[in-house]
Amino acid sequence: MAHRQRGSTQEPDDKTCVSCGRRMEWRAKWAANWAEVRYCSAACRRRGVTPTDQELEAKILSLLAAAPTIYPSDAARAVGGDDWSRLEEPARRAARRLVAAGEVQITQAGSVVDPSTAKGPFRIRRAR
């Protein structure tokens, strides 16, 4: 396990939440079980990764096979049909998970941004 120096102690590297795809920084309260920590919050633990989430990931990748960039809402529309708006945030989470897997990049104004801190609309492109 990789570690980084913080102050006078060595702490393990950050992880990515398996549900939302955001970066989780090491916390002292997780010291005893950092290797088992998979979720950043109780909400992410409850939500998990559903079959719809997996379908959104697959749809993002298939849409990127036909276009250089897409919006998360493009995948939500393709999966959700007329009721696509409920899938907008799940599509953003799917994009963040794909970033963590090294499959795609998230951009704003043409520049790659950190998916854990990106606010507002963003585009998705294949990783370069």
Rank of each mutant, 00 (worst) to 15 (best):
M1V: 11
M1A: 13
A2H: 12
H3R: 15
H3A: 13
H3Q: 15
R4D: 05
Q5I: 13
Q5T: 12
Q5W: 09
R6Q: 15
T9P: 00
Q10T: 10
E11G: 04
E11P: 06
P12I: 10
P12N: 11
D13A: 12
D13K: 14
K15G: 06
T16S: 11
T16K: 08
T16A: 11
C17Y: 12
C17P: 04
V18Q: 14
V18C: 08
V18A: 08
V18L: 13
S19W: 07
C20W: 10
R22A: 04
M24A: 03
W26R: 04
A28M: 07
W30H: 13
A32C: 01
N33M: 04
A35R: 11
A35W: 02
E36N: 09
E36C: 00
V37H: 05
R38Y: 00
C40I: 07
A42N: 11
A43D: 13
A43E: 14
C44D: 05
R46G: 08
R47T: 13
G48S: 10
G48I: 13
G48C: 09
G48M: 10
V49S: 03
V49F: 10
V49N: 06
V49A: 08
V49K: 07
P51D: 13
T52I: 15
D53M: 14
D53E: 13
Q54C: 04
Q54H: 04
Q54D: 12
Q54I: 06
E55D: 08
E55Q: 14
L56P: 02
L56E: 03
L56M: 07
L56Y: 03
E57L: 03
E57H: 01
K59W: 00
K59S: 07
I60A: 04
I60H: 01
L61R: 10
S62C: 00
L63A: 08
L64H: 06
A65L: 02
A67H: 11
A67S: 13
P68L: 01
T69R: 12
P72V: 11
D74N: 11
A75V: 12
A75D: 06
A75H: 11
R77D: 02
A78G: 10
V79C: 12
V79F: 14
G80K: 07
G81Y: 06
G81M: 10
D82E: 14
D83Y: 12
D83M: 09
W84S: 03
S85E: 15
R86Y: 12
L87F: 15
L87D: 01
L87Y: 15
E88I: 15
R92F: 04
R93L: 05
A94V: 05
A95E: 03
A95C: 12
A95V: 09
A95D: 02
R96A: 03
R96E: 02
R97V: 05
R97C: 04
L98M: 09
A100C: 08
A100R: 04
A100F: 09
A100L: 07
A101V: 01
G102I: 06
V104I: 14
Q105G: 00
I106C: 08
I106M: 15
T107E: 13
T107M: 07
Q108M: 07
G110F: 08
S111E: 13
V112E: 09
V112T: 14
V113S: 06
V113K: 13
P115E: 09
S116D: 07
T117H: 05
A118I: 03
G120R: 03
P121H: 03
F122W: 00
F122T: 02
I124D: 00
I124Q: 03
I124R: 01
I124P: 04
R125S: 07
R128F: 00
